[in-house]
Design a protein around this nucleic acid. Structure first.
Lengths: 362, 362
DNA sequence: GATAATGGCGAGAACGTTCTCACATATGAG
DNA sequence: CTCATATGTGAGAACGTTCTCGCCATTATC
């Protein structure tokens, strides 16, 4: 009844008058046991309030039935949804979830991965914060740790991966704006990168139609690429003054660049934001400047946040299947943990353009 | 360099030419060791890519340096923020975080708690889904498991607890509406309860000014109580037709009741929503009915969600310190884990009314 | 009636750590 | 010189499970 203190298998065995081996068998459910002894053991376990110690079990089996996740920031709706997806399938399969935040910083990510590895998780789901320098992830793979990447890839790291088809999604969104008659379309993207001159070079190459290794690009660069492709396809020039780099994953930074964009001559008639945080920053800027959507500026966002549906006007946006992405990643990871050995898979999930009222026809 | 496969302390000891005891001492940092052997061991550990097995360590020390959390739903902004707060202090103290969702269902919560206990977490943070029936939590406490409750209390369970001062916060919000000249104020609250007749009885008692044991009330009931108190203080009658029960923690349910309220005679001039989900449901209803804030209806919400600041008009709301609540809970839990033994503490955090543009003066 | 296969059980060795000893050596005090 | 104290080391026992044996019955096979 009242589980006083911790009872072990040995205690249960003693109370039931059997060996620890037998008690272990019925409690662990892994060998032959007579109905009679089984009853005794179960009774004793019940009385003593026996609770198996997963630590000891894991130590010997080598399996913890725990998944590790290193997300960017749990508080961000994108990660929150992805995590919920992961959690759903983990729970359905009896797995626990060890969760950490990297804040998109490589050092914190390395630290997280180390913590999770020490705790002997059976597999790891990571949104890598650096698509180039990721020795810790390569090591993980070399040691045989099942690993699934979400949202981004790592150059040269052949592991399972699930992401949105960013280029196609962005291209569709921007072409939608062009089809509505817009010719000057701004884009606000995170676009972090060590080399600050990279944006111009990238623009030049993309506009020229040079082939670009897009797989290992950060999502915001991929979405920028989609933006450029849309322009190329529709025969529109890309004005570099309209490609805004926030430089960090922060709504404040986005607000600042959008504010500047809308208060200097040569304003766009439409704006494309490349993720939830950029969308929030843009909205703040527009509110501050008292600009009306879509009269003063049309808007298409990336990622469907709760408020976009009841905002007036409704915000047209590219909806990523966040929950499904998490679920898919978790499922793939569990398959690897079970030992299945296909070649590394990349699941590119389609995003859906949900049209609401934030785009004006010109 | 390249950590081929798992190296144990014994492997390192062998490579360094010392006993496992000595190797353990330098790697674990817990005894005397000469500088010379220390170097050898460290070198060997480096070469072999030694990574301590936290399972084995925990098994013998009895400490896992892992906190368990059972939240309602990670995807909900309230829980997402609280979790981030918990995560911040956990990380700063070198603790891992095992997270589960209860979806506010007792059965799932029991299951979660059992999982976390088996995994031998050092302590547990729970948002209990049932304030009365919680034997699993009583058991936990009886077994000496450090436990902190967030957002809600459990009748008769004397453990540390952190919550918002809901009654005071709601009272302040409603009085703000009354001061602005509103006389018919609606309230939308979750108000789940087994007995469906309870709302009327509760209303009758509260309006009469009968003393009510408010500590173990669900937050939505507490906020309703604050609403009633505000009316009493200001000498205003409470019209039961204006107290809306969504009945479940769902935006859809809230949308439905608000829709009905605003389309039947005797509409209120202001509305108070008691949590983020209710706010979202109310916003959907208002958008659907094309009602303008604050011209057609004034609004005060509970919990400051991202969009409320850039919505036009800005939404006046009661801001809970979600992050700080999580941090406080984690800090209290860590103190208990360290063995400090004050009597059970209740931390009631003040909420702040942030005034924006959703309240009209009548 | 011997041999083999099967069900049921217990002793004891794992798993990879930490921890308790006992013991060795060096240093300082009297 | 002797005793105490501090520093360093290794053997081996924990921790609470699972797993591999070997043993004993019982039943099936020829």
């Amino acid at each position: 009844m009242t589980p006083k203190s911790k009872a072990t298998i040995a205690d249960v065995a003693r109370a039931a008058g059997v060996s620890t081996a037998t008690a272990g068998r019925v409690l662990g459910g892994y060998g032959y046991t007579s109905e009679e002894k089984k009853e005794h053991v179960l009774k004793a376990a019940q009385d003593l309030g026996y609770r198996p110690n997963a630590l000891a079990r894991s130590l010997i089996t080598g399996k913890t039935r725990t998944l590790g996740v290193v997300a960017g920031d749990i508080q961000n709706p994108f990660y929150a949804s992805v995590l919920r997806g992961i959690s759903n399938v983990a729970e359905a399969n009896g797995f626990g979830l060890l969760i950490t935040n990297s804040d998109e910083a490589r050092a914190k990510e390395v630290h997280s991965v180390e913590l999770l590895a020490q705790k002997q998780v059976d597999g790891l789901i990571v949104t890598p914060s650096d698509t180039r320098k990721a020795r810790h992830l390569h090591n993980l793979k070399a040691m045989g740790m099942p690993l699934v990447l979400i949202d981004r890839a790592v150059a040269g790291l052949m592991v399972d991966r699930v992401a949105t088809d960013n280029i196609a999604a962005a291209e569709q969104a921007v072409r939608h704006l062009i089809a509505a008659g817009h010719r000057r379309i701004g884009i606000v993207a995170e676009l972090v990168d060590e080399e600050s001159g990279k944006l111009d070079a990238f623009l030049a190459r993309a506009v020229a139609g040079d082939p670009i290794e897009s797989e290992t690009l950060y999502p915001s660069w991929q979405r920028l690429l989609g933006y450029i492709r849309a322009h190329r396809i529709e025969g529109l020039p890309v004005d570099p003054r309209l490609t805004l780099r926030a430089g960090s994953y922060s709504a404040l930074a986005a607000q600042a660049v959008v504010s500047r964009l809308m208060t200097t001559p040569g304003q766009p008639t439409a704006l494309f934001t490349t993720d939830g945080t950029m969308s929030e920053g843009a909205m703040r800027a527009l509110t501050e400047l008292k600009l009306s959507i879509p009269q003063d500026l049309s808007l298409i966002c990336f990622d469907d946040l709760d408020w976009m549906s009841f905002h007036r006007p409704g915000i047209t946006t590219v909806a990523q299947p966040r929950l499904a992405m998490g679920e898919a990643a978790a499922r793939m990871l569990l398959e690897r943990i079970r030992g299945e050995a296909f070649p590394p898979r990349t699941v590119l999930m389609p995003a859906e353009l949900v049209e609401r009222g934030s785009v004006a026809r010109l």
